[in-house]
Design a protein around this nucleic acid. Structure first.
Ligand SMILES: NC(=O)c1ccc[n+]([C@@H]2O[C@H](COP(=O)([O-])OP(=O)(O)OC[C@H]3O[C@@H](n4cnc5c(N)ncnc54)[C@H](O)[C@@H]3O)[C@@H](O)[C@H]2O)c1
Ligand SMILES: NC(=O)c1ccc[n+]([C@@H]2O[C@H](COP(=O)([O-])OP(=O)(O)OC[C@H]3O[C@@H](n4cnc5c(N)ncnc54)[C@H](O)[C@@H]3O)[C@@H](O)[C@H]2O)c1
Lengths: 204, 204
DNA sequence: TGATTATTGTTATATTTTTCACAAAACAAG
DNA sequence: CTTGTTTTGTGAAAAATATAACAATAATCA
């Protein structure tokens, strides 16, 4: 339920709401939240409406009610365990980031092919690839972040899939082949930067 | 010229083409390139068509011609200089990544408020915020990658804008206020991971 | 209490993006 | 040189997404 663009916005609303709540706000109007997240007020209302979240006519939306609705929708009652494959620069940055934990995502382990990475003092234990199966099972992990070099990506993915991973956040700039039931979300920072240059008109 | 989603795909085609060329391919069909990049063949053709790039009926597209067309469109004849603001874990990962240079984007300097970061052995020089103006001018920088904590993001952006930056790749999970002529591209890794969990159905 | 105002919820409209369908072109084979 | 095949290029249709418009409703105020 919910389109792709819509869930992205709902998750941004959630972040915005957390900020607004910290600032003492108890209710928001579609307009307020829209301004906080860069979305038009109409679309904010439509998104909530589509997920059955109700506000008060004239009274706006109750922040706590919104947040608990969003928590329910996004399964934030329980913590989701995540692994990182490829503990290079990017994998390290991600595994050290506290934001994920604040949002109920717990990075439980990293994996790397390079023995030198196993000893390193990371915030999370780093295992060789062989241990993937047992860690995934022990921590009931369903999603992974992939931060290995482009050439190693497909091999790593095959490995992940064979151990039952259902979703992959792929930072490598390459299309991964996976069975239909495995969802891949590609984030290509280079493309994002290049696109920015193009559209900001600095290339002319 | 060209919509937002379209330029993202064109840039992915470019990456795919570079790979295919390395593998010895001299011509591609819309179908081939589509499979490499996860786009339907029709859309590949439409995208090229929209940018005036022509193929050969029955003969497909010439890889070198495609690549040089894309280089022209994306200004890859000259190198674009980029700065990174916030040399923490993410800023460090980005500044050490060689992929950007391979794609004609040169990260010339980092900036940080923390004096401890200035001495660190990074691949690029790291300056205090005060030096931003002179570096931007000296290297003719128009775009920046923003990797400071959420709370510091707006201040850093105001700084960047005051020094003439035109485009910002924002990794901080917050909406930035900028003048209309400054383009911001937001990449929110947490939202991307959360969305993956939602749509992969692991939350049910 | 009745008029006024602010804000949601939703329907209608517009825009953007993708898919479908097929004619036009180019090449190959006989 | 004709026939058949492949693949592009594009117009039409469909689907997805966003904007606009406004009626319904709840609070406020005179
Ligand atoms: N760092 C960035 O700013 C950046 C930007 C855009 C894209 N990316 C992409 O993200 C990915 C990671 O980038 P990075 O900068 O962290 O690279 P990195 O070289 O620092 O790290 C890659 C890590 O993967 C490990 N590895 C290699 N092969 C492996 C395998 N088969 N199985 C498991 N681990 C393996 C390496 O030992 C290394 O630790 C790359 O695909 C890169 O293209 C990175
Ligand atoms: N690391 C991740 O995996 C990750 C994931 C999602 C989002 N992000 C976002 O990316 C940003 C950076 O994350 P990080 O993990 O690198 O954080 P970090 O704390 O490791 O690094 C932040 C850096 O910014 C510097 N800084 C602080 N205030 C500054 C200011 N006013 N001006 C200039 N520099 C300043 C700090 O000294 C530090 O070096 C954050 O906004 C974070 O929310 C990071």
């Amino acid at each position: 339920m919910g389109t792709f663009a819509q869930t992205k916005r709902l998750l941004r609303y959630r972040m915005g709401l957390i900020r607004l709540k910290k600032m003492g706000l108890e209710k928001v109007f579609s307009y307020t939240l829209g301004k906080e997240t860069g979305v038009t007020a109409e679309l904010v209302r439509k998104d909530f409406s589509a997920f059955g979240i109700k506000g008060h006519r004239r009274g706006g939306y109750d922040v706590d009610h919104l947040l608990s609705s969003l928590e329910r929708i996004f399964g934030k009652e329980r913590v989701q365990n995540v692994i990182v494959v490829g503990m290079g620069n990017m994998g390290k940055a991600i595994s050290m980031y506290k934001g994920f934990r604040d949002h109920k995502m717990n990075i439980v382990a990293g994996f790397d092919i390079d023995p030198a990475k196993l000893n390193k003092k990371f915030q999370i234990p780093v295992y060789p690839m062989e241990n993937m199966g047992e860690v995934i099972e022990a921590f009931n992990v369903s999603v992974a972040v992939l931060t290995v070099p482009e050439v190693a990506a497909q091999e790593a993915v095959d490995n992940l899939v064979s151990h039952g991973i259902q979703g992959i956040l792929n930072l490598a700039p390459v299309l991964l082949k996976t069975p239909d039931y495995v969802l891949v979300n590609n984030v290509n920072l280079m493309v994002e930067l290049e696109r920015l240059m193009y559209h900001s008109g600095v290339l002319k």
